[in-house]
Design a protein around this nucleic acid. Structure first.
Lengths: 312, 312
DNA sequence: ATGAAAGCGCTAACAC
DNA sequence: GTGTTAGCGCTTTCAT
């Protein structure tokens, strides 16, 4: 009588099926399968056997509705193609690994409208918490997060006002630190190259570097908005036999591990993305466990001069 | 009386709340919010207004339980850090974008035990379909997939027996094709370097290349199991001023876009990962729509000699 | 065009 | 240690 998935051939197995086979009540089966409450070793074994023989897979939808508990953590990030975010996810996964919580990822493709939609979808599954990239949320997105009724951790950037909790680095401070280092090493004419990756970062880095050096040949430092375009620039400079780091210094941002193995190590700021993911996930796990937690964790980006900045 | 998420302060808004505010039945609200059935324009507006003013977010858990319909597609892949899989996901997302289906990703970290667990978790949410990387599933994983009762699409490799449907390339054929090309270009002493990425592929490629050339200096071709270690090897060879591609040819596998911008374009096979994702997702979407679909889609990997193989 | 009733599969609470 | 009961918030079905 009731709706069934159009594709579905056989009806799904329920607790009742297992209960009948094991000659116990549904409740006992439920207890065994969740390791909850006291069940005698004998019944426990009978139930496990029955469940295994039938190939029973519990229905989490029903369980979640009944218990009002959904052990999912929504993670809303711009993109999986940007190397930054898989790193964050690694940290989140690690931190959640010894909890019952599981991450569920949604990508916004850097579009605020899409972010709103993804958030709405996420929240409609009533997750135990939400981790969302960025601190500048406004309008509907901010309202949804503020009214989510679950822990909300904004990550990556701490320069702004958090809705609930925030974990990240101050990009302003990180930029200032890099500027200090550049000046302290005696570079004077500094170019800044900024590109939000869509296609190949390396190729774009080459292009942009060629262009800026043509336009302004007397620059003695190039600061790139991320390591990938920075690495492209580096390859270009090496090919043109420019003297790096003496006549021309280079620096990127993020410390991508993927670039280990390049001819020169690019100067960069390590933004500790794995640690950010870990800390964010820990906040949610702690809140679920009733442990009070920080609402603002500001990590320090770590400067690394690599081989593309001269000594100070 | 009933359980509530321990973190939950305020009770969640229900259809009932919206219904009361709009002076209609829950049923009417449900119809309006799902665009289902005939509702007069006037009530429709009243309902939307009430829902918006309250900030109502529907509870998908309840909806899914009642309708036995979950518009999620489980995607089980080894890792998000391996560049291959974000590409596949891009394709999946694209293909699902104009359907009600949404992808949900689980990572196995190349561990069969973890894959089993991830699959079990996925299936317990009763998704509309499953896309899983790899065709060699055995034991519990195979049984779960075979009995899932929903479309199952195995992706990447087609060399094996599919459970339900399969989309990918024949890695055997791709390897044979590359071998043909290597031989046709007159290379004679061929080394094969294989590494499943964990850390930096580039660095590993350098190391392995140094090692194999030391051990066997008279090789005239190096075939890498993937582009990333191949690119590392290429950087090493260029630094050592080896004559590529004349004295030493190089080839990788996968055609990573991220490498565009390297000094030389590495010879490779394009494995069409985005297309694989698209086709896999389309199979599931079609099945949901009742459209019969292929159960075996074998794409041809495309050979690209790049700049690291001499002419034939 | 709208409403009433039943129930999806499971779990919290309580009884025994 | 085990069973009984009620009900989570929604959608299906059927009645009006």
């Amino acid at each position: 009588v009731r709706g069934r998935n159009p594709y579905d051939g056989k009806p799904q197995l329920t607790l009742r099926d297992v209960a009948e086979k094991a000659h116990v009540s549904e409740m006992t089966v439920s207890r065994v399968l969740r390791n909850r409450g006291d069940v005698s070793e004998k019944t426990r074994e009978r139930v496990f056997l029955a469940a295994r023989e039938l190939g029973y897979v519990p229905n989490k939808i029903a369980g979640a509705l009944a218990s009002n508990r959904v052990n999912l953590v929504g993670v809303v990030i711009p993109s999986l193609s940007n190397l930054v975010f898989p790193d964050v996810l690694t940290g989140i996964t690690e931190a959640l690994d010894d909890t019952p919580l599981q991450p569920v990822v949604g990508a916004t493709n850097y579009s605020p409208e899409r972010e709103e939609k993804v958030l709405y979808e996420m929240l409609s599954w009533r997750p135990s918490g939400v981790i969302v990239a960025g601190i500048e949320h406004e309008g509907a997105a901010r309202a949804m997060l503020a009214n989510a009724g679950v822990p909300v951790v904004q990550i990556m950037d701490t320069d702004g006002e958090e809705i609930d909790a925030v974990v990240g680095i101050s990009h302003i401070a990180a930029g200032a630190r890099m500027a200090d280092e550049i000046l302290a090493r005696g570079y004077k004419r500094i170019g800044f190259l900024c590109y939000y990756e869509g296609g190949s970062g390396l190729g774009k880095g080459r292009e942009m570097t060629a262009e800026i050096l043509e336009r302004t040949p007397d620059l003695d430092f190039l600061y790139y908005s991320n390591d990938m375009i920075g690495a492209g620039g580096m390859l270009y400079c090496l090919e043109k036999r420019l003297s790096v780091p003496d006549d021309l210094g280079l620096a990127g941002f993020n410390a991508y591990e993927i670039l280990d193995g390049f001819p020169l190590r690019l100067a960069t700021m390590d933004t500790h993305r794995v640690a950010i993911g870990q800390a964010a996930a820990k906040i949610i796990a702690d809140r679920m466990a009733g442990i009070p937690s920080e609402t603002r964790i500001e990590l320090d980006a770590t400067f690394d001069p690599g081989g593309t900045m001269r000594a100070r």
